[in-house]
Nucleic acid binder design. Sequence first.
RNA 1: CGGGAACUGGCUCAAUUGGCUAGAGCACUCGGUUUGGGACCGAGAGGUUCCGGGUUCGAGUCCCGGGUUCCCGACCA
Length: 414
Amino acid sequence: MKQSQYFFKTSKAAPKDDVSVNARLLEQAGFIHKEMAGIYSYLPLGWRVLQKIENIIREEMNTIGAQEIFMPALQPKENWQATGRWDNLDVLFKVKSVHDNEFALGPTHEEIVTPLAKGIVSSYRDLPLAVYQIQTKFRDEARAKSGLMRGREFRMKDLYSFHANAEDLAEYYKVVAASYKKIFERLGVPALYTEASGGTFSKYSHEFQVETPNGEDTVYVCGSCSLAVNKEIYADDKVCTDCGSKDYRETKASEVGNIFELNTKYSDSFNLNYRAEDGSQQPVLMGCFGIGSSRIMGVIVEQHHDGAGIIWPEAVSPFKVHLVALAGKDEAVLEQANRLYSDLLAAGVEVLYDDRTEVSAGEKFADSDLLGIPYRLIISSKTMAENSAEIKYRKTPEAQIVPLNQIIEKFSNA
RNA sequence: CGGGAACUGGCUCAAUUGGCUAGAGCACUCGGUUUGGGACCGAGAGGUUCCGGGUUCGAGUCCCGGGUUCCCGACCA
């Protein structure tokens, strides 16, 4: 993509109010734009990052046999009344049309997926099943805050599983937990497996917490095995359920995933039953497993930045390479940069090309640091004299001169 | 939902005790200069000072009401 035509603009001044690192850097660098408190537009750069995050999640969901579906954000009032949440869920958006029809704007999708499964599941032979979606969620938070960390409209992957018995549900719960661990590692934000309350559905749940000073949660991390406990259920005499240690340290963290055994909570509300082998009717057991993909984008920035800007992990960077032409009025330099850009595109390398001719070198470097793409390729009259390009790494001060004929090979497969 | 702070051009800010035609930088347009760490000169365009009321000869500034945003807390399937 040529930067001169790309739908974004960096700003020299940070946004006035936003103090959180992710809000400040993502807005200043032109990845997102705030529309209201907790509600953002994603510009091409930000949208690419979100897509990368969600594609990694998608790959891992598919790997554990979950099937992708897509459910509506606008949902029938009756379903929410059936579970009692029309009146009891304090973050629910209720919308009314000009015809006075009322709907819920989905904060989560148990009220859709459970009746949906009724049409599919009728026998033990149909179980187990797992479906997921990646969707925009709506929750009227009392206080939206910290950029993408807590929004009123946000992105989430939600997985729902259906089982014939508790053992099968417990088994899948472990499979998902292992999958989540891998996902957060791939995303560059390793998460603490954290014991938490089960809310209204179950005795317990597990959260995936990423340590960050800006996190909303307080967790206690076992010093010997790193199993964590959320403050909400932590006791002073807590003994680690995994290794028996009593040695805990306190830390701030942000919840990026949460997994629950719903058991028959929603099956009961919607009479989701199956016929067992002995001919009896039995309630289906359910699990629900969430990952906040837009929050993760914020958490990644909170963890990966420096004074000059963002430092994207390669797996989620909007582009792999930032090609910067320092051409000025030197047509030959510009031509060489253009040629390298074409070659990189032809080789399938994701490249953002700073082709702007009216912008000083210093400004280009400052913008490049702010954007945080892992590899910067510089073409200038200096590199041209050596028939080479300079590679500068975003996360280290290091730079190297590489002959032009080796550039494509270097980036096309690594 | 409680407390605090803020709101002036697309962005960041200024405007003396209530006083003249609301200024500057960034960004933008035109011309020129410049190109390895946020260059410069000249010209130009861009405003319902969050909204509504009030006080006053006169309100960006003072008063009342409302809104929005950020921060702290409470809340948080």
